[in-house]
Every structure is written in structure tokens, then in C-alpha cells.
Design a protein around this nucleic acid. Structure first.
Lengths: 143, 143
DNA sequence: ATGATTGCAAATGATTTGCATCATA
DNA sequence: TATGATGCAAATCATTTGCAATCAT
């Protein structure tokens, strides 16, 4: 298995997480802090199922409904983003809030973030079309 | 409702459809020809549900399983492509077999094909990464 | 005849919802 | 104590599957 292209993002302490939740207007409950610990730091494009599996190991009695509730809350609060990719029927979550695109490794199904400057896109559309965003998915393999 | 940006692609006669199926190595059954009539001509990025709804009006007693079977067969035969978009949990089918990208009208949820020259993408990735394809989704509104 | 295709209903997988209980402001 | 959060189970939605009946070669 090849190493990731970039070092994993730093981790946040529980109190930093709590601060972020509060400033985003989200009640920092124990369950939400736990889920954030995983989803905002450790995890790499997790699905709800993976969040639940992590919770089953690290925070017993956290229900699936709470996983979904929390993920939606975090997305609504702007702390997390959700994406749908062609090879996966599940939604994946991404803690990278900056402008970026994605790479799908066709060999493993793994998703990597691409920095904004790794992909250049320009559109030449009819003037009737007002562009609000562009999402690029690069498919390929890592040799 | 604004008119489409491009005229709808021409229609195929049942016998043209039959010919296409045969040369793609697909048995031209009545159900498949019927579905192709819709999916290869009339329809614009339909979902399986929309194909079924059309069949209910135009080809009674065509089962949902056959809709899915046929769509998969057509995709496997290279006569149709399937896509998954962020705003929709259903798969959508596209009879445009050329290289192209997509536009999502945020106001209506409608998907339009963008010609290859309406979008320019270039990637600058680590040499370990071998690119096999690039998919672009432009989000916006039509004024 | 022989294998492919179809229809129907039941199964699956992801996500959502209803509702009673529980925690926190 | 009042509002919001949680857990559980049942419900929903898209899609798949099992299998017997039917069709095409």
C-alpha cells in the first residue's frame, strides 16, 4: 500500500473541538465531540457506516441515528462537507473546507483531496449560464 | 421555463435501434427496444424511476427488474452511460457517448451536457499519479 | 431443447423518521 | 422545567436478487 500523498491533517483536542462546535452554534454534546474527534481529525473521507463502526469501538451506545444527525448538523454548521462519488452509493464526508477537487484511485476506491492548484478548470459557457461552482473528479491510479 | 441550450438529439427508428442492439451484441427483445426508444432518444438524463414511469404508459407489464436489467445491459454494451450526481441519490443515465461534462442547474435540479470545448481542465499532479479520466460538474443557474 | 430474458415478490443497503427518554441550558 | 439531543425500532427509497414462467435461437 503506497503512503498518502500528503501528511494527515493535525488533530484537535477535545476542548478545541468543543470551541469549534460552540462558535459554529452547535451544542457540544459528548456524542458530537466524540464523532468530531474522528471525523474532523482521524478520518479520511469516511462514510456514515465507518463513523458508526468507529463509534462502536470508541463510544459505546452511540446510535446510528445520532451518527446521521450529527453528520448533518456538522455539514449544516459548515464544519464538514459531504460528497457523493460515482463508484460509491454512500455519501462520504470531508473535513477539508478549502476549495479543492478529488482524485479517485481506481485500484483501491480511495479518495484523495487535490489542492486547488493541482487542477485548473476554465469554462466557456453561454452568457445565460451563471457559474456558482465547479467540481472536478480525477480518476486514475497511483503507480 | 427556459428552452434547452441545444436541440434534442434526433430519434432512432425501432429498426435502427434493433440494429444498434445487435451490433452491440445485445438481444433485441421487445422490452429492450421499447426502453431504448425512450432512453436513447426521447429522454434527457432519466433515472430508472422515470424509465419505469414511461414504460407504464407506453409498454404495459414491463417490470421494474427489467428496467434495471436493461439499463445495466445497455451500459455494459457501451450504448449508455450512468452517472451519479451530488444532489440526487438516484443514478441517472446519459445517451451522450462522447467526451463531455455536466452542468447542474441549481434552480431546477436539471442536468445538461456540456460539450468538451465548453470546459477546459488541466491537471498538475505528482508523477506517481496516472490520470485515466476527468469528470467536471459545473453548478450554477440559467438566467 | 437450451439458454437468455422477463415478471413478481421478497431481500438488501443506505438513510430517515417517530417517538419516548434523557441531558443541558 | 423547557428545549434540544439521543436511542431504538420501524419506515422509506433505490436497487438487487431468487426463482419460476416465457421467449428466442
Amino acid at each position: 500500500m503506497s503512503p498518502p500523498l500528503k501528511p494527515k491533517s493535525h488533530c484537535l483536542s477535545p476542548s478545541e473541538i468543543e470551541g469549534r462546535l460552540i462558535s459554529a452554534g452547535v451544542q457540544p454534546t459528548a456524542q458530537r465531540i466524540a464523532i468530531c474527534r474522528f471525523v474532523l481529525c482521524e478520518a479520511d473521507h469516511p462514510t456514515a457506516e465507518q463513523v458508526k463502526a468507529w463509534a462502536d469501538q470508541n463510544f459505546p451506545r452511540l446510535s446510528l441515528a445520532t451518527v446521521y444527525n450529527t453528520l448533518h448538523t456538522l455539514v449544516g454548521a459548515g464544519l464538514l462537507r459531504e460528497y457523493r462519488f460515482p463508484h460509491l452509493e454512500q455519501v462520504v464526508y470531508d473535513n477539508n473546507l478549502g476549495a479543492h477537487h478529488h482524485f479517485l484511485d481506481e485500484a483501491t476506491g480511495r479518495i484523495l483531496d487535490l489542492a486547488g492548484d493541482e487542477v485548473k478548470v476554465s469554462t466557456h459557457l453561454a452568457s445565460r449560464i451563471q457559474v456558482e461552482g465547479v467540481e472536478v473528479l480525477v480518476r486514475g491510479r497511483i503507480t
